[in-house]
């Protein structure tokens, strides 16, 4: 009887654990999983915040963080904190990343246009608490300044985001 209960418990617990690991992996690769910490109010037309990225080495993780910084401004918006109010996403249209998949694939390709809107405020490799060694690779945080207004204007000019005065 006790063996049957143990087997049943293992059968019930195992998929749950496996799913958690799987979910975690999906989250790593998901474009929605942006970890952002606002640090203050940026100068005219810019946003400053701390963003985390993942990668096999520190360089790759930094690039991933830069990509996440721009993607957050476009799809998710920035949370409030550090004296700054929340910032809405540039693309307010639901599922914009799927509707304009071809555009964003090119925009976020390696060395793509997204880099044009990033001004990294700390150039050296992240260290200390901003550099976490994981089982496979690194998780790092960088402080970035995103040229938010320039990015918005580019997306508006390309017909991806709607202009405030469109239709008038």
């Amino acid at each position: 009887m006790s063996i049957a209960v143990t087997v049943l418990a293992v059968v019930m617990v195992l998929p749950a654990n496996a799913q958690t690991r799987k979910e975690r992996k999906i989250l790593w690769n998901s474009q929605y999983n942006y970890e952002i910490e606002p640090v203050g109010v940026g100068q005219d037309g810019t946003k400053v915040f701390k963003v985390w990225g993942y990668g096999k080495d520190v360089g790759a993780a930094v690039m991933n963080a830069k990509e996440a910084a721009v993607a957050a401004c476009i799809f998710k918006g920035l949370p409030g904190g550090g004296g700054s109010a929340p910032t809405p996403p540039i693309c307010s249209q639901p599922n914009a990343e799927q509707i304009h998949a071809d555009y964003f694939e090119k925009f976020f390709e390696v060395g793509g246009k997204y880099l044009q809107y990033i001004a990294v405020t700390n150039d050296a490799d992240p260290s200390g608490e901003d550099r976490i060694k994981m089982k496979k690779g690194f998780k790092v945080a960088i402080y970035v300044q995103v040229m938010y207004d320039a990015l918005r204007k580019q997306l508006e000019a390309d017909g991806i985001a709607r202009r405030l005065d469109s239709g008038f």
């Binding site: 109010v41 940026g42 100068q43 005219d44 004296g83 700054s84 109010a85 929340p86 910032t87 809405p88 307010s92 938010y148 709607r162 405030l164 239709g167 008038f168």
Partner: peptide, 18 residues
């Protein structure tokens, strides 16, 4: 800072209205 911090959110509300 207050103006810079709040205006994007304000304009998003205006955009929803339009």
């Amino acid at each position: 800072e207050a103006v810079l911090s709040h205006m994007d959110n304000f304009n998003a509300g205006l955009m929803r209205h339009f």
